[in-house]
């Protein structure tokens, strides 16, 4: 399914935003990541064609930025900040306990494909540690002042929502 078929209006709106076509590459990559949480080579090829770039040039962007993913993982990515400020407020321990509770290690995905746990650098939520962001395709939400219990409730809610779909 191509982006131009799937999101015709959004693609147009993105083009309208910049005087140079190439600037559209990042927003288009987010679109490409919306459904399945990662960017397939076909999407890179389509974006390259749309922007008159070579696929390699698009791939080079995907590779550079840490919020673009080129491999499938969980539907949701729980990205816990363990950078210095959060770590000073117990983020490492939080992450460890969270992993134990969910039953996977950092970088792994739950068997049902629902969540992947990742460790990330500072998210600008330092005063509300422990905290993480939840990446869902092209969307992100912040979850601050978290406890393992609150996180497990969130995961359950996500699981339920997913099951209902």
């Amino acid at each position: 399914m191509s982006l131009t078929n799937q999101y015709p209006d959004e693609v147009q709106a993105i083009f309208a935003k910049y005087p140079s076509r190439r600037s559209a590459v990042m927003p288009l990559l987010y679109l490409a990541q919306r459904e399945e949480g990662y960017i397939k080579k076909e999407s890179m090829e389509e974006i390259a064609a749309l922007l008159d770039l070579d696929t390699t040039e698009v791939a080079a962007i995907v590779g550079f930025y840490s919020m673009y993913h080129d491999e499938k993982a969980g539907k949701y990515r729980i990205q816990v900040c363990t950078d210095i400020s959060c770590a000073l407020r117990g983020a490492d321990t939080f992450l460890e306990h969270l992993c134990d509770n969910i039953g996977i290690k950092v970088g792994e995905t739950t068997p049902d494909g629902l969540v992947t746990i990742e460790e990330v650098k500072c998210l600008a939520g330092c005063d509300k540690a422990p905290m993480f962001q939840l990446q869902d395709g092209d969307k992100v939400s912040y979850h601050e002042n978290m406890t393992v219990d609150k996180t497990m409730e969130l995961v359950e809610a996500l699981r339920k929502a997913q099951a209902q779909k």
Binding site: Y30, Y65, M67, Y68, V120, K121
Partner: peptide, 10 residues
Amino acid sequence: LKTHLGAGAY
């Protein structure tokens, strides 16, 4: 004015 989102790079 327009917003533009980066993608995770300090």
